[in-house]
């Protein structure tokens, strides 16, 4: 008599919509706070290098001489720490995850940061 206790559950599931989403045919709904991937607003970046120094996964690199900001998308752990400590708040967290890839290195992205004209401080 104790057997087949699961039958009620199974019958219930049989006549219900599937619990899984039909991904990717039906796109996923993202929550407001979902941490997906890091994006940069390059025009705001001042190349201070704070994000690269504080990154727990060493996924960021900032080159002052070449004026580039680089991210290893596959190395990034999506903690979002850089978006919090960026002094110009030019880094943001997008909701979509990084797309899967067969090659580790394809995640590398180099973004040239436009040189800023620093207003000269005339004393």
């Amino acid at each position: 008599m104790g057997a087949f206790r699961i039958s009620g559950l199974i019958l219930g599931s049989l006549f219900r919509r599937p619990a899984t989403a039909k991904y990717p045919a039906v796109p996923r709904e993202w929550e407001e706070r979902t941490r997906g991937r890091i994006e940069i607003d390059a025009s705001e970046c001042i190349l201070c290098g704070m994000c690269a120094r504080k990154c727990p996964a060493d996924a960021l690199a900032v080159d002052k001489a070449e004026a580039t900001w680089e991210i290893d998308m596959m190395g990034c752990v999506q903690c979002g720490h850089c978006t919090e400590i960026c002094p110009k708040k030019c880094l943001r967290m997008e909701k979509e995850y990084t797309a899967p890839d067969c090659d580790r290195r394809t995640g590398l992205r180099k973004i040239p940061v436009p040189k800023k004209v620093t207003p000269r401080n005339d004393r």
Binding site: E31, E32, R33, T34, R35, V77, Q78, C79, G80, H81, M93
Partner: peptide, 11 residues
């Protein structure tokens, strides 16, 4: 996911 932004690693 709703409250922290991560399903498994909450940070």
């Amino acid at each position: 996911d709703l409250t922290t932004g991560g399903r498994v690693i909450h940070s």
